[in-house]
Amino acid sequence: MTIEERLKNNIALALQLLLLLVGVYIIIMAEEFRIWKIPLLIIGLLSWFFFGNKTKYPIIWIMLFMILIVDLCNLYFGVANHHFMLLYMVLSVLLYFYHKRTEILQKNIQMLLVVVVITSVVQKLMSSQFINGDFYYDMMNKGGLFRVFFRFFPEKFELIKSNYQSFLDLNNTNPNLYKKIELKTIIPHQASVSLVFAWVTIFVEFLVALFILVKPKNTWTHLLFAMMILGVLCTRLETGFMALLSICGLLLCHNLKLRLLYVLMVVGCITLVVTKFGFH
């Protein structure tokens, strides 16, 4: 089968990538709540090996869903937001095995994306620390933003390290003294850049949500969405969540070149997650 033929069957490809991503995620989280996961894995894997071809039930997906539920029940306020997204997506896939209708699966994914991105916009608008640029300013000072690029500029990296040390020293003092420290800025006009960047983030996310709601399969929508994902990856290695969003894009997109871009992003993100270079 050629690459083009593989890309034409985007649903099968996306499900394969999702299966790989959930598998990797579950291995990373495996140490937590072993008492529940060990029996689930033994029963699930044996059923899959012995009855996988004989039954109509998607045994492997059911097992993965149950393992995700174990983490959710025990760590509801501890798991990352993409754990919830993973659960919704696996649930959509389970339903897909029942109804077998591509347009319903795509509607699930489309609406999920709209809900997630628009909620992210609302959360940002509700945070004064975000809308006045203070949050990005702090992230830059402590190396939380564009860290990958700053590594190529040793003098900037030294500033970040020095800022972080000042922050640690402050935390070793009695907070009742209301001591203030001054952090060193990393880039020129950082105060203004942080503010502009915050509002650009809100605007782009809002546009993405709007486009996905109105034109979920349009090439321009996916160009913007893919650019947003790449933009997030450039600022910070949120690889787990971005892999999930790329799989969503792959499920919805009609353009073969953009499908290829999504596949490359998912594979790249999974590689970074597995090698623990990015966040899971």
């Binding site: 306020f77 937001n81 909620t119 945070s127 620390q129 702090d138």
Partner: peptide, 26 residues
């Protein structure tokens, strides 16, 4: 008073992470 970063509300990266909150016991 749940922090926006957690609980499935997609409020991550909207404010300084809650791990930077400091517990102080004189």
């Amino acid at each position: 008073n749940l922090n926006a970063w957690k609980g499935g509300g997609y409020g991550m990266y909207t404010g300084i992470h809650y791990q930077y909150n400091q517990i102080y016991i004189p």
